[in-house]
Nucleic acid binder design. Sequence first.
DNA 1: GAGTGGTCTAGACCACGAT
DNA 2: TCGTGGTCTAGACCACTCT
Lengths: 250, 250
Amino acid sequence: MRTRRPPTPYSGPVDDSLLTHGRALKHVQVREYVRSLVAGQAPGSPAPSERELVHRFGVARMTVRQALDTLVSEGLLERIPGRGTFVARPPRVTSTITGYSEEMARRGLLSESQTLLARREQAGPGVARALNLTEGDAVIHWRRLRRGDGQPICLEDAYLNEVLIPGFLQSGMPTSLYDELGERGLRPTWAEDSITADKATREEAELLELAPGAVVMRHSRRALAGEKAIEVSRSVYRADRFTMWIQLGG
Amino acid sequence: MRTRRPPTPYSGPVDDSLLTHGRALKHVQVREYVRSLVAGQAPGSPAPSERELVHRFGVARMTVRQALDTLVSEGLLERIPGRGTFVARPPRVTSTITGYSEEMARRGLLSESQTLLARREQAGPGVARALNLTEGDAVIHWRRLRRGDGQPICLEDAYLNEVLIPGFLQSGMPTSLYDELGERGLRPTWAEDSITADKATREEAELLELAPGAVVMRHSRRALAGEKAIEVSRSVYRADRFTMWIQLGG
DNA sequence: GAGTGGTCTAGACCACGAT
DNA sequence: TCGTGGTCTAGACCACTCT
């Protein structure tokens, strides 16, 4: 039986991001070592064997397994019993939440965005409910006319929970809302969308340079980052210039 | 230090589904015991503590942790350091691939489906490409008029890879395509959808009981079960009676 | 202080794949 | 046969929460 374990005064080079209470956890060290080894490797490339890592780090095999378990559950590695551990083929993208800018980029179109309105408002009943706020709470209302290759494509009214993004209006409006949210750790991870077809109102037709009554697609979204309802938006798209693409599942 | 472990001749009641090579793995026993305890429990209810399970099953704590790890990664349990292990609140549904029947059921509408066509055809170029087939390969073409509460809502043309579902046409058409595919282990796990708005053609307008030129929503789907492309479909929905709901992310 | 989960050890035997 | 991952043991110390 083992006696007391010494207080593990680890003293090697340590990435600060890997510290917990001032000390790097061993399984984290192993995990990040393997992650860096494996970064950029082709799918199917072998990762170090568990016993090799045991040797290199002087840790128990269970510790190595804990490290690899994480990477396997991340989809980075794949274990094949009797053969070894290998770089997994990149898992199919699991329905990413994308915004308009990314949608346009994906099709190779130049994405432009003209802000028609960006101001603090009091939440109405619908917006308040969608953002888990109380009616009258402060929200940011951002209305944009969006173009692809110069042509009007979409008119979007987004409402953002101001409490979650202090200084948003003052900092100048970002090009990509979702990138900006990402930098604040609030990139939406979940969204409820609804989509229907309709005819453009007169105002919409004017802004989108359509004949009144032309066919449009209406898209509503409620986007959440973790538990936080961050954005609710209503968009109207020219049907003749826009097809929505969605990938579901993983 | 331990000596050799005895050959673990487990003899308790064993669910066949839990057997591997004729012997129930201990972590599986523990896992399924906890799963059954926790089934139907309200979120936040405590699960047995790790040490309690160690006692009850006479196993090492690492074994119990392995069992609980699985349930945690399934989203069934949640660990809170210093407090215990608890039933997790049901994880948000990660964008399920749903078919029309399930969509209707979700809104509490009576879903009906009238088969207009169900036959073997030779794949055209578009369908062949979508199903990873060669032009001329056999596909099943299934055209349905779908109603909600008696009203025409959707006209759908589905093409299925016949090789993957032998005897499909002969067995009588199912009510829910996705349920039927599920029973063959081919429930789609991934789908590429595209959605746009348009005006109904004369034929569509007739079948959907619309005025010619009325606004409709067009929906295309390419659905895969694992690596197998199983279904490709084109649907047209009456915009006045149907809004598409999508949940993204998890 | 008692109980909980988080981390870690230093081994063991097994089934399986490659050689 | 040798190396691999899969399973398992019987403990240990830690930080944390709750009472």
